[in-house]
Write a protein that binds this DNA or RNA. Structure first.
Lengths: 190, 190
DNA sequence: CTCTCCATGTAAATGGTTACATGATTCA
DNA sequence: TGAATCATGTAACCATTTACATGGAGAG
């Protein structure tokens, strides 16, 4: 179990609702930790009960009320303990790569479509990361920001996310090209 | 559930025991699908019962007997169906990135060590992927191999794995450098 | 008038991890 | 003499996904 630590880490950026948290997980955190909204709501409830975070209700007009959560002292300490512990190996799971590995001559057609779709998603994520990084660094150049900003964690993970998506894009394009070429070459010639 | 498809895909390379499969998952498959040996043994048993693979016992001297599994026709068809379906988004989970995101001034020390450790693991994996790719392509150059080899799936996923580890290595080195620099700058000066 | 965003959850089913169990052989 | 490799599993526990449930506001 370590979804809790991903949640605590996200709350370092300030007070957040479950809904906001799920958006954050979608865009920036998802590149190193994936979780569904239901999990986040459940985890927030547990963390509050254990006293690692504290929640307060905000009443809104014209939209549902929400609960905002903040890190408590016990939560900060728990994060420090977590950081000091050895890390477990990273965990990846990707259908599309299983498919590419399995792909034989037939079935190539559907796969090329999926590679192009994934490439499109990667382009969109690269744009999002670019925006995020620009926002974080403001007017500083990158080296200055990394040397002097109060917190660099989110920037460093953003760099990793962006690089990951760029690599994904490059690979999807290459793989689609290879599969297309092979499909053409294996067609009977007129 | 789709561990089954990763298993079926791996069996395209030929007959394998649960033990061999767990080694394969460790080295090449792990870059897009992670699974423990116990899961693999359980999944093989299920796949055999459902008729997607067939097993045979090989009696050995000086070491335990083993069971070798082969894809059955129904297994190949199941793989084809799987490839035609839309892919789910990829799933990543990495403690180390959660820690980097969470990292504040203190606790930096332990983290730098973990980044260096991960960098070392990445270097080892890059070497493994290089070896794997060289073995697969034999004396061909890469473009020829990708254009003409009977199966390119394992080569393409190997390229992705290698690129991923290279990016990981680069990022770990950069992050460790940044954190080290900041630790020095924030130390009281003599 | 339909779709998306906001906002929060519960319950059942599936899937994954941890701990345990065994035991001979080979390499350092 | 201790560790790693070969080789296969079971059982209990934990985590995650899928399906369900609700409902007003604002945009196109």
């Amino acid at each position: 179990m370590a979804l809790r630590h991903a949640v605590l880490a996200a709350l370092l950026d300030g007070e957040m609702s479950g809904y906001q948290l799920s958006k954050t997980f979608d865009v920036s955190v998802s590149n190193y930790w994936h979780a569904l909204p239901q999990q986040l709501y459940a985890e927030l409830a547990k963390l509050e009960k254990e006293g690692l975070i504290t929640g307060r209700v905000v009443i809104q007009q014209g939209r549902p009320n929400k609960r905002l959560f903040t890190l408590a002292a016990a939560g900060t300490e728990e994060l420090a303990r977590f950081i000091a512990q050895p890390s477990r190996p990273s965990f990846i799971r990707d259908d599309l790569l299983v498919k590419v590995r399995a792909c034989e001559a037939d079935g190539t057609f559907a796969l090329i479509g999926q590679l192009e779709e994934r490439a499109g998603q990667a382009r969109a994520k690269i744009a999002l990361f670019d925006k995020l990084l620009r926002q974080l660094r403001g007017t500083d150049d990158e080296d200055d920001f990394l040397a002097r900003a109060p917190r660099v964690g989110p920037y460093l993970t953003g760099l990793r996310g962006k690089a990951f998506e760029e690599e994904t894009l490059r690979w999807c394009e290459q793989s689609a090209r290879v599969l297309r070429l092979r499909a053409e070459n294996s067609r009977p010639r007129g």
